[in-house]
């Protein structure tokens, strides 16, 4: 039984901003549903002749766990197991071992974990589950994928945590994930943003390095943006964080999956349509990458075209700023 103190310490209890966003999202969703009962009735199911979502085949093998595989078992903050993220699950240990845990430097391993999750795992809107199940399935929401990255890092003895924020998204991504279903669109539009988006962060050589693993190269190509690398932030690239909503947490908080569970229950058809649209976006991106001559060529070309780069923010404490209670 987890004590209240542990719940607080590990970040299971939602932060004030998270509660605000949950409530905002919940109220907005309820309102959208209540005001659109007719649409809901139509959209909650998939019609007989409608295209159906078929989950893509997992793109990797999971080695069989054996006792010779090394792992980090620690109760230290950012290394220990948290909600939905147990780095000691056999699938996590086996994959971390395959990716070079304890054989590579922290930087090299975190990069390998980043590429594995970003390139081999696929976005699917689905309710939240334990990380082992996510690896077995090979798909998940961005939070499943971030959890997968964090679990791999923690298993390899690298501290890792969540960075969450409310965001606006770039148009291309909006078209694929929001416009794909009228109900989701109305929900999004009535709020102005989805409730919470996230990234992982790994602690390497005294610095937290960001890892946005939620977007495959193909989806980024479909959106016309560069293929982001380990250490590159999604904020400013395809999301813009709503000011004041960035939160750092060791764990996914309690109640996090409620919204997706709820919408899955109320409007499973909507979820399916969004997942179909994501698959189409991936196919479109694959074609764009092929036409450009591969991922590297596409990435180079897009970065050159982008031109307007942003300075990187590195906020440090300043002795002149004195905080008083």
């Amino acid at each position: 039984m987890t004590s209240l103190r542990e719940m607080k310490d590990k970040g299971y209890i939602p932060q004030k901003m998270q509660i605000k966003l949950f409530l905002g999202g919940g109220i907005s969703l309820s309102k959208t549903l209540l005001l659109n009962m007719g649409d809901l009735k139509k959209l909650r199911v998939m019609h007989n002749n409608a295209e159906r979502y078929v989950r893509p085949i997992r793109q990797y093998d999971i080695p069989t766990f054996n006792n010779n595989m090394r792992y980090c078992e620690s109760n230290e903050k950012f290394l220990r197991p948290t909600l939905y993220c147990n780095p000691l699950e056999p699938e996590v240990i086996a994959l971390a071992d395959k990716l070079g845990a304890f054989k590579k430097s922290d930087q090299e391993f975190a990069e390998a974990a980043f590429h594995f999750v970003k390139e081999k795992m696929i976005l699917e809107i689905i309710t939240i589950n334990e990380v082992g199940e996510t690896f077995r399935r090979g798909t998940g929401t961005c939070f499943h994928l971030i959890t997968a990255f964090i679990a791999l890092c923690r298993c390899a003895g690298i501290k890792a945590r969540y960075k969450m924020f409310a965001m606006n998204m770039i148009k291309a991504w909006y078209e694929a994930t929001v416009e794909a279903d009228p109900l989701v669109k109305k929900w999004y539009d009535s709020m102005g943003y989805f409730m919470i988006e996230g990234e992982g962060e790994a602690y390497i050589d005294g610095k937290w390095v960001v890892a946005h693993v939620g977007a495959e190269a193909e989806r980024q190509a479909a959106a016309g943006i560069p293929i982001t690398k380990f250490g590159e932030d999604s904020i400013g690239n395809w999301f813009s964080a709503i000011p004041g909503t960035i939160m750092i947490s060791e764990s996914i908080p309690y109640g996090f999956g409620t919204a997706t569970k709820l919408i899955k229950k109320i409007a499973p058809g909507s979820i399916e349509r969004v997942n179909i649209s994501i698959q189409k976006q991936i196919a479109r991106g694959r074609k764009i990458i092929e036409d450009a001559g591969g991922e590297n060529a596409y990435d180079k070309m897009t970065r050159m075209q982008r031109g307007a780069q942003m300075p990187k923010l590195d906020i440090k404490l300043r002795k002149e700023i004195i905080f008083e209670e």
Binding site: S240, P243, T245, I246, R318, I321, F323
Partner: peptide
């Protein structure tokens, strides 16, 4: 236009 809130905004 991209800034944190609270004490981080001051930093």
């Amino acid at each position: 236009k991209d800034y944190p809130a609270g004490r981080d905004f001051a930093l």
